[in-house]
């Protein structure tokens, strides 16, 4: 059998369809929190699932392509610093999830805690470091403004992932368990 180089076909497809779902969730399913202009980002929870299953490369590509396409389609211009930050989040969470074996076996309490620490760290790196620095270097925006925005994004994304991301990974891993355990009950 010849060995394939580069991304496997499955990774390519996971990137393509993962991105499509990411964009649809981004556009249609954001839950306002009640505080003006802030919303819980369901797409971010999907991203953490895809990155956990398919790894850092697919995670990074889905976030990068998805965010860039969504910006282009909805706003006309692409806000590169945030696109890069989101891509970095996808890579980081995919890397941590692989290291923690999040999607293999059962999703134990220990794994849940590990996953959530990892996602909070990834969110902080992405939104509190990469995005604001990008805003300052690329767009010359005032530091006070971009760091405040960073704090808001990092917290909202961490909360979204903690609630919805944890939930769907738990549901996903439950279906991955061995089926021998199933038997008919009277």
């Amino acid at each position: 059998m010849q060995k394939k180089k580069g991304l496997s076909t499955k990774a390519v497809v996971a990137t393509g369809i993962g991105t499509a779902v990411f964009i649809i969730l981004f556009k249609f399913l954001a839950i306002p929190t009640g505080i003006a202009n802030t919303q819980i980002n369901v797409a971010q929870a999907w991203l953490s699932l895809i990155a956990s299953i398919f790894g850092p490369l697919v995670g990074g590509l889905v976030a990068f392509i998805g965010h860039a396409l969504n910006d282009g389609i909805s706003y006309g211009s692409i806000w590169w610093s945030w696109v890069i930050a989101d891509g970095a989040f996808g890579v980081l969470i995919g890397f941590f999830a692989r290291y923690l074996h999040v999607t293999s076996g059962t999703f134990t309490t220990k794994k849940i805690i590990g996953f959530n620490i990892a996602q909070i760290v990834s969110n902080i790196i992405a939104w509190l470091i990469i995005a604001p620095l990008g805003d300052i270097f690329i767009y010359s925006e005032p530091a006070a403004k971009v760091f405040t925005q960073g704090v808001v994004s990092a917290s909202l994304n961490s909360i979204s992932t903690a609630v919805l991301g944890t939930a769907i990974i738990a549901i996903y891993t439950r279906t991955q368990t061995k089926k021998d355990s199933l038997e008919y009950e009277a």
């Binding site: 279906t175 199933l182 008919y184 009950e185 009277a186």
Partner: peptide, 10 residues
């Protein structure tokens, strides 16, 4: 009824 506790996926 005999499968009431199965996950949907199976």
């Amino acid at each position: 009824y005999p499968m009431r506790n199965w996950p949907i996926d199976s």
